[in-house]
C-alpha cells in the first residue's frame, strides 16, 4: 500500500505547484500552506488539466493547445520541460493542425444546431382554443416583453412571455396569428425573411415568405 505522499510526488509539477502540495502532504494542511489552494481548470473542458486526457477526442483537438500554452508541466511527456522552444513549436504545429482540422468539422455542426431562426408554431389550448408560440425572436435582438406588449395592442389579444419545455423564452400569442405575426416580425423588427419559419402542422416546417 502506498503512502498518500506518493500522489503528490507523482505529479511532475512546476516548482510552485509541487511546493504547495508537498507541504500539504507533510503536515496535512495545518500550517504553512495558504488555503484555499488555487486550482487551475482547463479553459476548454473545465476539468483539472491532468484529467483532460480521459476525453480523447476533445483532448487532441482542443485541450492540448490550451495546456501547451497555459500549463505544459502537467504533461511532461508531451511537453518536455526546459525546452521552451519545443513547446512553442508544438503549439505552432497544433495551431496549424487546428486550422486544418477544425474548420470543416465545426461548420456543419453549427448549421444543424446553432443557426438562429424564428419559429412560429400553433399549440392547442383547452377546448378549441389555440395559441401561437414564437421561439427564437430573442436571438435577433428583440426584447421579448416589449414585443409581447406590442403584440397585445396590435392583435387585441392576450400575449405573454413564457418558457417552453427546453427552458427557452418564447412569446405566446392567443389565437392563430402565425401569418400576421410573421409579417409583423419582418416589417417592424427587421427580422430577415429567410429565418422566419412557420409550422404548418406538427411536423412540416415551411418558410413564412417563400
Amino acid at each position: 500500500m502506498s503512502d498518500l505522499s506518493d500522489i503528490e510526488s507523482l505529479d511532475g509539477g512546476s516548482a510552485a505547484h509541487s511546493d504547495v502540495e508537498e507541504q500539504g502532504a507533510v503536515d496535512d494542511g495545518t500550517a504553512a500552506v495558504s488555503y484555499p489552494l488555487h486550482v487551475v481548470y482547463c479553459g476548454n473542458c473545465g476539468l483539472p488539466p491532468e484529467y483532460c486526457e480521459f476525453d480523447a477526442k476533445e483532448f487532441e483537438a482542443r485541450c492540448k493547445p490550451w495546456i501547451a500554452s497555459n500549463c505544459p508541466w502537467v504533461y511532461p511527456d508531451l511537453f518536455p520541460k526546459g525546452s521552451g522552444g519545443a513547446v512553442e513549436e508544438n503549439m505552432k504545429q497544433l495551431d496549424i493542425q487546428d486550422a486544418d482540422g477544425e474548420e470543416p468539422k465545426e461548420k456543419p455542426g453549427k448549421k444543424k444546431k446553432g443557426d438562429p431562426e424564428v419559429l412560429l408554431a400553433l399549440s392547442t389550448k383547452k377546448g378549441r382554443k389555440s395559441a401561437t408560440v414564437i421561439t427564437g425572436a430573442d436571438l435577433f435582438g428583440i426584447k421579448l416583453d416589449e414585443a409581447a406588449k406590442m403584440f397585445k395592442k396590435r392583435f387585441a389579444c392576450g400575449c405573454a412571455v413564457t418558457k417552453n419545455a427546453q427552458q427557452q423564452d418564447t412569446i405566446e400569442v392567443q389565437g392563430d396569428q402565425r401569418r400576421e405575426a410573421a409579417e409583423l416580425l419582418r416589417d417592424q423588427y427587421n427580422v430577415p425573411e429567410y429565418v422566419i419559419f412557420i409550422m404548418e402542422d406538427k411536423k412540416s416546417k415551411v418558410r413564412a415568405f417563400p
Binding site: L4, Y35, P36, V39
Partner: peptide, 18 residues
C-alpha cells in the same frame, strides 16, 4: 480541490479513472 484535506482520502488505480 481548494481544501484537499477536508475529507479522508482513498486512491483508485488508473484504470478506474475513466
Amino acid at each position: 480541490h481548494m481544501f484537499p484535506h477536508a475529507l479522508p482520502r482513498v486512491q483508485v488505480d488508473r484504470g478506474a479513472i475513466k
